[in-house]
Design a protein around this nucleic acid. Structure first.
Lengths: 254, 254
DNA sequence: ATCGTGCATTAATATATGTCAATATAATTG
DNA sequence: CAATTATATTGACATATATTAATGCACGAT
């Protein structure tokens, strides 16, 4: 089977737009403390104490856990604007590790300061709540996908979620984006072995739903793919809030 | 195979102790609005608007989603002290449904009021943060179990998590608890079919790790079971906080 | 008592997915 | 540019788990 060259890892993902993270970084005055980290660097290590939350300002990362038998499970893909590991700080030892997939810029926020954000930066409160909710929903949706859907649908769902999330931060165009993940990582995120995942990816391509060329994913038939995955993007979008008449501060002017 | 009578559904789970939920209910002055709901009643429906968070004061519930093909995926078991569905309120339509497994008492908190809790009840802030974190960790752990572990380990993990969580609210003794879940529900939570789950449950019993009699689960070999499931309960316990020297308000005197 | 219903149990069979191993291709290094 | 490594690809095979169906047991309703 003549192959494209899908999904190779790489180190040069440069954001085209400073997304929401820019605004948040400004609000939180993170310029002073934010710093670059190299691709592949681990900024949080499971089992070690972790006392700060990291705002991802640029770049991508994964949150994962190593199992005793050497398997790795990837729990999350972190994009610019995400707070990385708001969870681990609340435990004696970090529960998960975080590793950069690309060169990145992160802004550390000491946990105490982070927890005070609701009172010190009330404009951010609604946004923080929403991010917690959306993060939780993302995990729930993955759980459904992994627990209940066949491999093909799982992969479809995964590619679609990334499309929508990357679009939200200006890192994907209408139907394509750059993906710095190896097939092994996707497998580790979806609970699929690499050879099988590879076959499924090819099936999706042969069905004309997706294309992989160079290091990009291109969704060629969004509708079909969404139907296959039973994908609804509601959990990735803030409520319209029209119903309740209010408008969150963080959607107003900066 | 001579059988016990494991895991039948029932409607009479009465808490032996008023757990944390009691304190929280007091703090939030929920007596006036809290009310009883019958077993089997749905208090949040996926797809319908949801404008309040429910504190579970007594009883148990499940958070779940129906899929198009009629399958149901159970995302969470809710126990006394849990805030049910802090997520759905943040979206136009509830993403998940919540249904009582037992007769219960719940205290509704309008979403706006809930979001204001950080400023109006600062004593609760740390606890709220911790609950968000723990909820998120619970989902992550389930994701790992479902994505990466064989059926036997999944079930082991599930039974252990419930033991520890129920202990924390005084609804389990040293090694046993009442479980108002059918095998179908456990299957729907772990992504396993009922016949297979049944076999696995029997294997666990034959291995001498667990026993099911009457409507109770009894963990007969915690160590072995925990090893099998690679289970660590850290994600269910608040940080000792010894390291940082602080003590959360909600652990102090009422 | 009798029936009906919900749930657990068991078996036979099908299938999705994993494992292992080999090869190819691209990326990286010296 | 050669050599080495990382990643993708393919195939043959093993197995965990689903599916379907049938049976049995408890319990509630009549």
């Amino acid at each position: 089977m003549a192959a494209g060259s899908p999904l190779r890892a790489h180190d040069d993902l440069t954001p085209t737009l400073p997304p929401l993270s820019g605004e948040a970084a400004r609000l939180l005055q993170l310029h002073a403390v934010s710093h670059k980290v190299r691709s592949g660097q681990e900024i949080v290590t499971a089992g070690r104490r972790c006392s700060a939350v990291f705002l991802i300002i640029e770049g991508m990362a994964v949150r994962y856990r190593m199992l005793r038998d050497g398997q790795r499970h990837i729990l999350d893909i972190l994009l610019p604007g995400d707070f990385a590991d708001t969870v681990s700080c609340h435990f004696d030892k970090a529960l998960y590790s975080i590793r950069m997939l690309t060169p990145a810029v992160v802004g550390p926020i000491p946990i105490q300061q982070f927890m005070d954000l609701f009172s010190t930066h009330p404009q951010l409160a609604a946004r923080l709540f929403w991010q917690f909710s959306s993060d939780s929903a993302k995990l729930s949706e993955r759980l459904i996908a992994v627990g209940r859907r066949p491999a093909k649908a799982r992969v479809a769902y995964f590619l679609l979620e990334l499309l929508v999330r990357l679009q939200a931060v200006g890192l994907a165009d209408n139907c394509s984006y750059r993906l710095p993940l190896t097939q092994e990582m996707i497998g580790d995120a979806l609970g699929l072995s690499v050879p099988y995942l590879n076959r499924v990816l090819h099936e999706l391509r042969d069905d004309g739903l997706v294309q992989f060329r160079d290091q990009r994913v291109e969704i060629t038939d969004f509708e079909e793919l969404a139907a296959l995955a039973e994908f609804e993007d509601a959990y990735l979008r803030p409520a319209s809030l029209a119903a309740s008449g209010r408008k969150p501060a963080w959607q107003g002017r900066a």
